[in-house]
Amino acid sequence: MTVFIIRRLLQALLVVVLMSVIVFFGVNIVGDPVYMLVSPDADQDDIAAAIARLGLDRPIWEQYLLFLKGALQGDLGNSFIFGEPALQLIMHHMPATMELAFTALMLAIVIGIPLGLYAGLYSESPLSKGIMAGSILGFSLPTFWVGLMLIMLFAVELGWVPATGRGDTATFLGIQSSLFTPDGLSHIFLPALNLALLKISLAIRLTRAGVREALGQDYVKYARAKGLTTRRIIFVHVMKNIMIPVVTVMGLEFGSLIGFSVVTETIFAWPGMGKLLIDAILQLDRPVVVAYLMIIVLFFIVINLIVDILYSLLDPRVRLQDQGA
């Protein structure tokens, strides 16, 4: 296991370096941020001074090496717009995104898995067919449209929950989050649901497919032949098997929940990293964009690692191979 983790960390390092090259050069091709920053009546000297101040007068490879040098010391550059360190800016917005993604993941698990289980066990019932039809809608309707519809229905027409913003936060166990106040919960409900919709559908389909496959397996018939209760067969024999793909996929999807929260955060004016990214892109705030992408890459790497470890905990067959490695 230790060898496995060390090898994975080395691979991760390579991925981070490669990503930094792609991201840094990619972002530097697009637009010229200087004209966004200087006042409209600035003359050539002012512009030249601004370029020099941002370090944009140097060759791009030199800019990259400088960036790399800073990055090794935990400095991903300063935001052009705010003048603050980009990393600090992102960290400031991160809790809001994390709580949103986490809530969405929980919704996907709590709603998706039971529905998928039902649809898999009673695949012929009208309710199951309804669930499956619903999951197709969840897959195909665009997030921004569903978000607007949710606001229309729950916030405007019914007035049950607020449409935008993050609401009050409270600190619990050292974590400051809106999940700990009633006001915060009412604010997070709509954006989390919107973000979760796709993942709920995914969980339903994965679970259903897993259940349908497992029910046809000999080990289920054998478990029945042993006289076990249906309850034990489903919740121990079947569930333990289908949890392997479900945990793998849902774990990996957590990364995409963070990454794709951009749209949802924009619609619901949720003050998270996604909103920050969109603003940074619009204002050509290169250091923030680069820093954001680097952080997302790190997230994906860490999540993949955790999923791999979880996977080996769930599947004894994988565990054995690891010991051999």
């Binding site: 080990y219 054998y222 032949a225 042993k226 006289g227 076990l228 034990r232 333990k240 004894p316």
Partner: peptide, 30 residues
């Protein structure tokens, strides 16, 4: 009656034991 008064042994031992449960779990539950 199943597994108690009437037991069954299946054809393919590769497929009948649940791959993610230990032998003790699968025997004790019976």
């Amino acid at each position: 009656l199943r597994g108690n008064r009437i037991s069954m042994i299946f054809q393919d031992p590769m497929m009948t034991l649940n791959p993610v449960l230990r032998i003790d779990t699968q025997m004790i539950e019976a």
